[in-house]
Design a binder for these strands. Structure first.
Lengths: 137, 137
DNA sequence: TATTGTTATACTCTATAACTATA
DNA sequence: TATAGTTATAGAGTATAACAATA
């Protein structure tokens, strides 16, 4: 069977992303978090007081789809909502949320390390710069 | 707003993949095909007589999820089913399917070119080898 | 008038289990 | 008994439109 797609950058990108995403999801399972949840917790910690809208913009998640995620964080006691004005609120990690976030960051470190160690050394340093050129433009 | 994730390979991979995937989907819109459809047509052409199961294995798509895709190709007149034995059949492109496949390959060429031209030259040659190391292991 | 959070909804993609007919 | 194709279905993830409250 000839796989004529393997050397196409777009195809390789999709397959590599899906594979690494699945691996990261498995790594997060003990925390009952999905990759998107993990990203959100880390960003809330680094940007205390950020609004759901702004957070959604950073992660390319629509306002409407943020609601159930933020609600779940609230129910789990991971975040606090602090009213900014009458219609919007800022998000901050609770103590429990901060503890979970520490575990998330550990999982991320493990994940990123596993990714890098798979890449032949001579290509390693080029991956992130190449990828950043693709989505930040 | 501090985006502490941008330099993580896993995150950069996901964002780059999603962005390029969306761009490719837009490029395929005139053909009324999704990226997965495009991959399938090209693989059928390169592997005439391949079964849906084998095709699904190459693309990491489950047997059950192949059914509606293959059915649609059939309805569009893009493929022919040739019985291999009583329970399985091989897929081949029809003349119309071959014509559509040519357009698909053109779209792929455009897409891959757009990807590559965005990447700074010194990183360019490293992308595909790095990505292949991630999902073929 | 524009924006924030929200609700409801629909559509795609993917995953699972079970069935049938054939090998 | 194992396999190929199929059916039905459920769960994510994502997209859209509309609404209330507020700026």
């Amino acid at each position: 069977m000839r796989d004529v797609l393997v050397d196409l950058p777009g195809y390789a990108l999709r397959r590599a992303s899906a594979s690494m995403q699945a691996e990261f999801a498995a790594l997060l399972m003990p925390l009952a978090l999905r990759p998107t949840d993990a990203s959100m917790l880390v960003l809330i910690e680094a940007n205390a007081g950020i609004t759901p809208s702004a957070l959604g913009q950073m992660l390319a998640i629509q306002r409407a789809n943020m609601v159930p995620i933020v609600s779940r964080f609230d129910e789990c006691g991971y975040i606090k909502r602090i009213a900014l004005d009458g219609r919007s609120f800022g998000l901050t990690l609770s103590d429990e949320g901060t503890r979970v976030c520490a575990k998330v960051k550990l999982a991320m470190k493990t994940h990123e390390h596993r990714i890098m160690e798979r890449i032949p050394e001579k290509h390693r340093a080029h991956l992130v710069p190449a990828l950043k050129a693709l989505w930040s433009s």
